[in-house]
């Protein structure tokens, strides 16, 4: 009964295998680079007149990296799905903010709200694009090694490791339970269906919890002492750091130029 082992589904779906210079960078240098880039983006002043130019500069930097990595723009756009809740919030701001108002398409909107909303949208989009680029060029397992090297607490890295390993297993259980329900004529259409789905979610939780206990037992049996041992780590020279950090440094240059000239 090997049903439901979807290949390439789940959490690994973002990753686009490749051998570009961006792919080959050590994961922890890329993590630092993306974090620093996001920081520069966030530091861009909201109400400065040159802010849109800076956003355009950041965007072209990202597109340049994507071109080097061989990631198609369509792939980047798909990464933006996680941003949808922020978009709603950003669209709401011009309507609910106070201050001087302006007419746009017959709607009375707050000027400062428009600026704030637009800037939230731009900053979130740029940061998510950078993160999408990271996910597309870095294998999830390598990403975990990177987090470990950056001294993220071991427990968090372990939780993430198990999430990647067991997402498919739990997903498979969920699918099998769904098939079993529907095989007996169940249809999740009416509100009454919640009476069935609630306990199903509960039983999935119990099953996962019990699996967690069995996995822990298996780990103890092989001498687990509280940390996941990792393999050898490569020494990273200044050149790879320089290559990785060129993205946030270029972004910082754009920001610096904006505040000097603007």
């Amino acid at each position: 009964m090997g049903a439901g082992h979807g290949h390439g589904a789940g959490l690994a779906a973002m990753y686009v295998p490749g051998a570009s210079p961006v792919h080959r960078l050590e994961p922890h240098t890329k993590l630092v680079a993306v974090l620093a880039f996001a920081l520069v983006v966030v530091l861009t002043p909201v109400h400065a007149g040159w802010a849109p130019w800076a956003y355009a500069g950041f965007l072209s930097l990202l597109l340049g990296v994507a071109a080097v990595a061989g990631i198609r723009p369509g792939r980047l756009l798909r990464g933006l799905v996680v941003e949808v809740p922020f978009v709603f919030f950003a669209l709401l701001l011009p309507v609910v903010s106070r201050g001087p108002r302006t007419e746009v398409l017959g709607l009375s909107l707050s000027e400062s709200g428009l600026a704030a909303g637009g800037s939230i949208l731009a900053k979130a989009t740029l940061s998510v694009l950078a993160a999408t680029l990271l996910a597309a060029t870095t294998d999830p397992r390598a990403l975990l090694r990177g987090l470990d090297r950056l001294r993220l607490p071991a427990v968090l890295v372990q939780i993430l490791t198990f999430m990647i390993r067991y997402a498919d297993v739990v997903g498979g259980e969920l699918r099998r339970m769904k098939v079993a329900r529907e095989s007996r004529g169940f249809r999740a259409r009416r509100v009454g269906a919640l009476k069935v789905l609630g306990p199903a979610a509960g039983s999935l939780f119990i099953r996962s919890y019990e699996r967690g206990e069995r996995v822990h037992l298996a780990m103890l049996s092989r001498g687990y002492t509280g940390r996941l041992p990792t393999g050898p780590v490569a020494v990273v020279g200044p050149r790879s750091w320089a290559a990785a950090l060129s993205l946030p440094l270029a972004a910082a240059a754009v920001l610096g130029a904006g505040s000097l000239l603007g």
């Binding site: 975990l144 490791t161 390993r165 069995r214 780990m219």
Partner: peptide
């Protein structure tokens, strides 16, 4: 010890 469900035993990536 080799446990019954290999998914319990194989937890690394």
């Amino acid at each position: 010890i080799v446990f019954q469900d290999p998914d319990d035993q194989l937890f690394m990536p």
